[in-house]
Simulated assay, not measured.
Amino acid sequence: MRLALALTLLATPALAGVEEAVNAWILPGVAAFAESAGTLARSAAGDCTADALRPAYLAAWEAWAPLADIRLGPSEAGALSIAYWPDERGAGARTLRGLIAAEDPAGLDPVAYAEVSAAARGFPALDLLLGDPDLSGYSGGSYACRLVQTVAADLAVQAEALAEGWQAEAQALTTAGAEGNAEYLSPDEAFRAIYTQALSGLEFSADTRLGRPLGEPGTPRPTRAEAWRSGRSLPNVAASVESAVGLARELADGPIPATEAALDQVHHAEAAIDDPSFQDLADPTARLKLEILQQRIRALIDAMEAEVGNPRGLQPGFNSRDGD
């Protein structure tokens, strides 16, 4: 489960960095995602076959991945239907297979598709439709091909809505404490909100993006990796790490050398991994490399807490790594 950080504010100085984090990192990222999702939808409308669409799909994933762990404002609910994962019960696959078997009209209407299970929408749906050998061999003009067009169009609509919603959220964050701002009553609250996203994203990558495919010693679960059919498992971890450190740089009062050094160690661990989809974990050496990456990300969390949170008077409360 995603880390729930209970952060206790010990001091309340005028906190800088929120405006920089929003304007230099989050808003450009949301805009880039909306643009790439629109390109994906237009590409699907032109040629919805799996081989033709895969480059635009991967480009959209690349744009989304740095935003995936930000769950503020419109992203708190919006991210669920853009990238519903982990899907513990396989609801997405069952829904998609059922739609295809029945040639359900809902799969041909982007408006109606917004009411379909979140697990069968967005990137996980496309990961299955474009990457599963039993689903991806469809021909142009088939129901499955038209379903892909619907999923892509629905994703583009969601991306536009997210970009629009973030305009209001950005205003709320950057005017925290101002009269009439009922969402963030002080600059401290806005800082704390973004800082928490950075830390919880790293924790999610270590415990879930890496922990799920690692499974238990002797029993790896490689097909539990995120977007493994698309080879996005490692790139998604890398994007999460870069996003967290990018936010930390904006929030920090000054240089964060320990965090930068820890990031370098993460990069080294990433470079040692041979299979970006984590499907080689039956090999003890491959497993060890993934465990080392997990350890490096946790060391990065510690460095970020020391250099970004602690100087602002923020200390983590419950932490799942403590075993409490």
Rank of each mutant, 00 (worst) to 15 (best):
A272H: 02
Q171G: 15
L155W: 03
E291I: 14
P311H: 12
A258K: 11
A118N: 10
E270R: 04
L129G: 12
R89I: 00
E164N: 08
P105N: 07
G107E: 05
W61Q: 06
A119K: 10
V237K: 07
R224H: 07
P124H: 04
E164T: 14
A248W: 07
A303V: 08
G218M: 06
D274Q: 12
A156N: 05
T12H: 10
E19T: 11
G90L: 03
G313M: 03
A14C: 02
A50G: 14
D132V: 05
V237H: 05
L99G: 02
E203A: 14
D322Q: 05
L147T: 12
K289F: 02
N319W: 05
I194N: 11
P66L: 08
D104R: 00
R146P: 10
A144N: 03
E216W: 01
D69T: 15
D127M: 01
T219V: 09
W228F: 15
R212W: 02
D87I: 02
D207G: 09
E179N: 05
V148C: 07
A198H: 01
N319H: 09
K289P: 09
A79D: 02
A4C: 03
L130H: 10
G309N: 11
P133W: 13
G323H: 10
V30F: 08
A77F: 14
L314Q: 12
P13H: 07
P187A: 08
A106W: 01
F123R: 08
Y195T: 10
G215P: 06
R42V: 04
A286H: 10
A37Y: 06
A83S: 05
R212D: 08
T8E: 13
L251M: 04
L290M: 14
W61S: 01
A14L: 13
Q279T: 15
F191K: 02
V148K: 12
A118I: 05
A65C: 13
P222N: 04
R209Y: 14
T150G: 01
